Simulated scan of single mutants.
Amino acid sequence: MQKTVYFIEGDGIGKEVWAAARPVLTAAIEKAYGKERSLEFEELLAGEKAFNETGEYLPQDTLTALQNAELAIKGPLMTPVGKGFRSLNVTMRQTLDLYACIRPIRYYDGIVSPVKRPDLVDMVVFRENTEDVYAGIEFESGSDEAKRLIAFFRDELGVTVDPTAGVGLKPITPNGSKRLVRKALEFAVAQGKPSVTLVHKGNIMKYTEGGFRQWGYDVASEEFAGQTTTEDAPAEGKVVVKDRIADAMFQEALIRPEQYSVLATTNLNGDYLSDALAAQVGGLGLAPGVNMSDKLAFFEATHGTAPTIAGKDMANPGSLILSGAMMLEHIGWTEAADSIHAAVSKAISEKTVTCDLASQMEGAKTIGCKAFGELVGSLL
Rank of each mutant, 00 (worst) to 15 (best):
E140V: 14
L45A: 00
K3F: 15
A220G: 12
K170W: 02
A279G: 12
S339P: 05
S38D: 10
G210Y: 06
K351P: 00
A50C: 09
D144R: 15
P59N: 11
M314V: 01
I321M: 14
S345M: 14
F139V: 09
Q2G: 09
T173Y: 06
T305P: 08
A364G: 05
A225W: 12
I331S: 11
V262D: 00
E140C: 10
T208N: 11
A46S: 08
A190S: 10
D97P: 02
G75A: 08
L120Y: 08
T366N: 00
L96W: 03
D122E: 10
L320A: 09
Y134R: 06
T4L: 13
K170N: 08
Y134H: 02
G282W: 01
S359E: 14
F7H: 02
F152Q: 05
G210E: 02
Y260A: 00
D97S: 10
D61N: 14
P174Y: 04
V161F: 13
P257W: 06
S38Q: 12
F85E: 13
V90Q: 09
P76V: 07
K206L: 11
S261C: 02
F51T: 07
D313V: 11
L169C: 02
L63W: 00
D232Q: 15
D313I: 11
T229S: 13
I348L: 07
W18I: 08
A246G: 09
Y33H: 14
E258Y: 09
I13Y: 05
P163D: 14
T64C: 02
A248P: 07
M92G: 03
L286S: 10
I137E: 09
L149Q: 11
I321R: 12
V196S: 01
G226C: 12
A336T: 00
E300Y: 05
K49F: 10
T302V: 15
I105M: 04
T366E: 05
R117L: 01
K3N: 14
V90K: 01
E231W: 06
L169P: 03
R93C: 03
E156H: 05
T62D: 07
L375T: 04
A278I: 12
N267G: 03
T308K: 15
D122G: 04
E329W: 06
G55H: 03
P171R: 12
L66D: 00
R127D: 00
L273I: 14
F153W: 11
A279Y: 13
A371Q: 05
R182F: 01
T173W: 04
Y107L: 04
V159K: 13
G136A: 01
E335I: 04
I150D: 07
R86C: 07
V281F: 08
V262M: 14
E374V: 14
F51R: 12
M78F: 13
I13W: 00
T228W: 00
P288C: 12
E186D: 08
V161R: 13
G270Y: 06
G311V: 05
A27N: 08
G211K: 02
I204L: 02
